[in-house]
Write a protein that binds this DNA or RNA. Structure first.
Lengths: 201, 201
DNA sequence: TTGGTTTTTTGAACGCGTTCAAAAAATGAT
DNA sequence: ATCATTTTTTGAACGCGTTCAAAAAACCAA
């Protein structure tokens, strides 16, 4: 904070006139970087690539924009997971990027999951982000490798969602991670879209 | 640290004679709690329940043991993800619990995944832990609900792994998160167990 | 016992994020 | 222009995790 204030040419305490806390500054920085990533993605996604390619583009743009601030990986993650600060805006931007990636992919993903796939990819991306945040390998090589290996798997999964069994797994996972699901307490939730009746019970 | 040192009846600086840092104390605490969870699980898992039931038992034992220290959720997570401190021991214990959960389940999970399922469950459990660490709902209600809803989904997934398509997804996911995968840099990894040949390269 | 060596323990200080009362500056009505 | 009010800016301090030189204690050969 002392360095930031000095660089801004104000006193230490004056920095708190503009920002609530250091974490708040980190949150703003993350927001700026996500906006930068969005701009980068908008330049790269408009060519009708495959879904796999688009997934890689978005993820790589992410680590590229954040790379100069990799030392703030853990604070970034904390801001994102703590659900405070301006992170609903960050989530909005992330979701928008995944909508572009899905909507611009050729061939288009199966119709049945097309609407929900962006939210699913958001979950996947959060997992990548977690890995990246604590990636101690040089140049975050591990994260890049993970992205490279993950993109085809997710794309394959999307295609397999044409099969009802796989599709129901997709729905289950999405329902689990949907925050609304956690609010249901009283009634037992029946499994959604049970494609195969359980033998008993 | 001042409070801990005072409670221990030593001076502040003397606490650093026994522990490297505050994070180190947190890591040791987490290890103790995992050992406690293991003991709890060993008492509850020896009855040949279903896999779903065992999954719930292990996860619930986890949140139960950690509940008194929920305020340390984020530091716990950081310790676990940063890969420092004594967390390979923590991982060992967690893996052991999942081996008990899988090996003691009746009916036994499909043979093809029986060996790898514990590692898969470890990944799932880490995700639950992440959710729990930042769970702001009262009594961590959200985490409990998530566990309740997740157990049947994972159990269902395990059964579906009898189908080759689903099984290959299982293998893919496990390979992705395996740290060894990230070390492969030079050669392009061919997709393992491709069940359906792509139409063109 | 002595004197030297190692282990244990401490007090004082540092850096960092944060707070707060109050000074300085800007603003606005009379 | 004057004074009251609000906005902007600051210096001094606090709490916390951490470090370190040095004191105190324990240990051990001579």
């Amino acid at each position: 904070m002392r360095v930031i204030a000095a660089n801004a040419g104000v006193s230490l305490s004056h920095a708190y006139y503009y920002f609530e806390s250091k974490e708040d500054i980190v949150a703003q920085l993350l927001l700026n970087l996500r906006q930068e990533q969005l701009q980068l993605c908008q330049d790269l996604l408009d060519e009708g690539n495959t879904l796999e390619s688009n997934i890689r583009i978005v993820l790589e743009a992410g680590v590229q924009c954040l790379a100069p601030y990799h030392e703030f990986g853990p604070p970034f993650l904390k801001v994102l997971l703590s659900g405070e600060h301006a992170n609903e805006e960050v989530t909005r931007i992330e979701l928008l990027m995944w909508e572009l990636a899905v909507g611009g992919a050729r061939p288009l993903p199966p119709l049945g999951i097309r609407r929900d796939l962006p939210r699913f990819l958001l979950l996947v991306a959060r997992q990548i982000f977690t890995t990246w945040a604590f990636d101690q390998s040089s140049q975050q090589r591990r994260s890049h490798t993970l992205i490279k290996n993950l993109a085809p798997v997710v794309a394959k999964f999307a295609v397999l969602c044409r099969l009802p069994v796989v599709r129901s797994l997709f729905e289950d996972i999405l329902a689990l991670m949907d925050p609304r699901t956690s609010d249901i307490v009283e009634q037992d939730r029946a499994p959604r879209m049970a494609l195969r009746k359980p033998k008993a019970s």
